[in-house]
Design a protein around this nucleic acid. Structure first.
Lengths: 220, 220
DNA sequence: AAAATAATTTAGGTAAGACTAAATTACGAG
DNA sequence: CTCGTAATTTAGTCTTACCTAAATTATTTT
């Protein structure tokens, strides 16, 4: 019932890649996990063959998580996001520094430890990037936000979440005031390159699609 | 330069077993690590053969740590003891609950994390059991205490440290007031079974050798 | 000092989980 | 529909770190 670090990483990535409803391809998984596609095939075949199967898998069709697999993935994700929150709140990490550390800790902490930090933090619902934290009974809350890339001039909202782990990018966004809670207004859109011009506080910035896709906006 | 979890465990145990100046035997190591002696032989041969050798080893003579091995061991021990301190101080763990959790975390935390918790705790010198925490430059401070088992009637002192990980024992000792800082006086000694009668506060207790060997007493 | 016993080492094996190279399958263009 | 490319899978290797069984070395007893 307790998975290895490797397996937990597979499950977490599969969860992320299948959030949109599509199945996760061997190649995508390999890229996300920084391993070779051939290695992925081996592992997902094993995960699909296991007694209580953690993934659903048909040759050349990609993988999805089973009920059990999803639970296990949400457990890891809960660990990760609680840890990030806690590193920021109690040890003064900044949001661009927490990812790596949480990535290692998430695999080794006990359920007891998880409960203790959740309680100490007041049972937070979002991590420092604004990502939703799965509940204690391992349900993922509904996200009511849309990617910034889908907004158009005149539209506005509150920055809910930044889906990124890259230190440089996060620092850059922070410099622009683009952190969870920020009020944003779209002032211009360029249909050719999908650039958006937005106003955050006093500042006006132009952002490309590769960034606007990672920023999620919700109701004020 | 970064060792696997297994190797770190070997080094830590070897450090502990050789603190008394003697070398660590294959069997003792196997017992401490809960693995078979044959497996220990294989690993220590590898550690001794490595480019910068971590252990000194001659067939049938047991192992000791090299300079490099000692540094690596102290790094792990520092992690472990800082973590225990920190689990107790910030998450409300009791001294009998921290061992297992620290045992897993010690292998994955970064140097940055180590520095942050050390600073947050005010650079403590002892962990919740009173064990000395290696300094940031990886020197083990001198311990100026002796085992309770070496004291005799009329002698007294302050409890400095309890070298034990067993939950039951630790809870028992706590119930008797035998925690770091306690003032202790020896009132009786039985030369046949080495039992000691001691007074802690109001309480008088008789302790066997297996316990008195694990309790360390120092100057008031 | 030889025999019995205990400790240690050798030899060979297994399981995870990665890799490379080669084979196969799927898919888009003509 | 067939060819070429891209994605995927198969097959076979490697490393780490454990295991068991058998052989060897050390130590203790008689």
């Amino acid at each position: 019932m307790k998975q290895s670090t490797s397996i937990q990483d597979y499950l977490k990535r599969i969860y992320e890649l299948t959030e949109g409803g599509t199945s996760a391809s061997t190649n995508d998984l390999a890229r996300e996990l920084n391993i070779k596609p051939a290695s992925v095939t081996g592992m997902i075949q094993k995960l699909a063959a296991d007694k209580p199967a953690l993934v659903e898998y048909q040759k050349h069709q990609g993988v999805t998580l089973t009920k059990d697999g999803k639970r296990a993935a949400l457990e890891v994700i809960r660990h990760h996001r609680l840890l990030e929150t806690w590193l920021v709140q109690t040890l003064g990490y900044s949001w661009d520094e927490v990812h790596e550390e949480a990535e290692k800790l998430e695999h080794v902490i006990s359920e007891d430890f998880e409960r203790r930090i959740a309680a100490a933090l007041g049972h937070p619902t979002r991590d420092p990037h604004g990502e939703l934290i799965p509940t204690e009974d391992l349900k993922m809350p509904l996200e009511n936000s849309t990617p910034l890339s889908s907004l158009r001039p005149e539209q506005s909202g509150t920055l809910k979440c930044v889906k990124a782990a890259d230190t440089k990018l996060l620092r850059h966004l922070e410099g622009l005031g683009l952190i969870p809670g920020a009020e944003i207004e779209v002032t211009d859109y360029s249909p050719f390159d999908h650039n958006l011009t937005i106003k955050v506080g006093q500042k006006t910035t132009v952002l490309g699609l590769s960034i606007t896709r990672k920023i999620f906006i919700g109701e004020r």
